[in-house]
C-alpha cells in the first residue's frame, strides 16, 4: 500500500532488523500494518508505547518496530506487561500473543488479566496452530483438524478466544481477521482507546503449517476462507447454531464500562495514607507529651 510507505519508514526498525523471520504471506505482517496505522492515527508517541510479546511467530513482532519493545517468555507477556503498567501508568502498553501463547501456557494469566481490568490492550493472533515450533495442535485447533501432533485429527474442542475474554471480564473484546484489514484497523483503535482490559482476537493464516497439514491451499486461499467464514456479530446473533457451523463472528463482542485496576488501587493508596497520617498525629502527640514530661522533671 503506497500510503503506508511513509508510515513504515516512521515506525519500522528498517535499517536494523530486516529481513524478518516470517514466511512470505503470513498474516502476522498484515496485523503489524494494522497496529502501526492504529497507533499512528491515535497519535501516541513512540516513547510512550510499550509493545510486549510472548514466544512464537507472533512473539517476534515487537522487534521490528521502533517502540519500547519487550519480548518475554512463552505465555507470560501479560505478566510482564502488568508490571510495566503498574510501575508507569502513563505508558501505553500493548501485548501481542499467539493463540497457544495466550490460551494454553498463558491461559491463566489471560483470564486473570481480564478479571483484574488493568488498562492494557491484548492482541491475540489466532492461526489455529503452534506456528513457530512447526505445526503442533493448539487450544484453537478445531476438532478433527490435523497438526503434527494430531496426525489423525484433533480430538479436543477449541477455545473461542474473544468469547473467553468476555466471560473472564474484559471490558472490550473483538474479533477481526487479516482479510478484513480496514475493520481490523478500527477494532485495534477502539481497543487502544478503551479504558481497561481490551482484547482483539485476530484470525490469521499459517499456510506453512495449518494450511499445508489441512490442505487449505496457499495464503490467498486461506484469506478467502476468512472472507467466507466471517459473519458480522450483528448478523450472527440472528443466525442459528447450525447456520453458524464452521463460521465465526467478527466485530465487537463486548464494549462495557468498569473501573480499571489503577483507579481502584489509587483508592487503596489514599486509604493507606489517611490511616498513616492519623497514626502519625497520634505518635506526634505522644512524643510531645513525653517531651513535656521530661521538661517538667
Amino acid at each position: 500500500m503506497i500510503e503506508d510507505r511513509p508510515l513504515i519508514y516512521k515506525y519500522l526498525r528498517h535499517d536494523k532488523k530486516f529481513p524478518h523471520v516470517w514466511c512470505g504471506g503470513c498474516g502476522i505482517g498484515i496485523l503489524l500494518g494494522s497496529l502501526i496505522r492504529a497507533i499512528d492515527h491515535l497519535g501516541y508517541t513512540k516513547d510512550e508505547v510499550v509493545l510486549v510479546s510472548g514466544i512464537g511467530c507472533s512473539g517476534r513482532l515487537p522487534v521490528y518496530v521502533d517502540f519500547n519493545t519487550l519480548h518475554t517468555t512463552h505465555g507470560r507477556a501479560l505478566t510482564f506487561a502488568t508490571g510495566v503498567k503498574l510501575a508507569k501508568p502513563e505508558l501505553k502498553v500493548i501485548i501481542i500473543m499467539g493463540d497457544g501463547d495466550a490460551t494454553a501456557i498463558g491461559g491463566n494469566h489471560f483470564i486473570h488479566a481480564a478479571r483484574r481490568n488493568l488498562d492494557l490492550t491484548a492482541i491475540i493472533v489466532n492461526n489455529n496452530i503452534y506456528g513457530m515450533t512447526g505445526g503442533q495442535y493448539s487450544p484453537t485447533t478445531p476438532y478433527g483438524q490435523r497438526a503434527t501432533t494430531a496426525v489423525y485429527g484433533s480430538v479436543e474442542h477449541s477455545f473461542n478466544i474473544a468469547q473467553l475474554a468476555v466471560c473472564a471480564g474484559a471490558v472490550f473484546a473483538a474479533r477481526g481477521t487479516v482479510y478484513h484489514v480496514r475493520q481490523l484497523d478500527g477494532l485495534i483503535e477502539k481497543a487502544l482507546l478503551k479504558n481497561g482490559f481490551s482484547v482483539v482476537e485476530v484470525i490469521s493464516q499459517c499456510h506453512t503449517h495449518y494450511g499445508r497439514l489441512n490442505k487449505l491451499g496457499n495464503q490467498i486461499d486461506m484469506m478467502k476462507q476468512q472472507r467466507d467464514s466471517a459473519v458480522p456479530v450483528e448478523k450472527a446473533r440472528k443466525m442459528s447454531p447450525e447456520e453458524m457451523e464452521g463460521k465465526f463472528e467478527i466485530g465487537i463482542l463486548v464494549d462495557r464500562e468498569a473501573p480499571n485496576y489503577l483507579e481502584q488501587y489509587n483508592k487503596v493508596r489514599q486509604k493507606a495514607k489517611n490511616a498513616l497520617s492519623l497514626q502519625l498525629t497520634k505518635e506526634e502527640k505522644e512524643e510531645s507529651e513525653r517531651r513535656e514530661a521530661l521538661d517538667k522533671q
Partner: peptide, 13 residues
C-alpha cells in the same frame, strides 16, 4: 510465574 514476570516488567519501567 506471573509474580516474577510482573517484577521484571516493573523494573524495566
Amino acid at each position: 510465574i506471573a509474580s516474577m514476570g510482573a517484577v521484571i516488567g516493573g523494573s524495566l519501567a
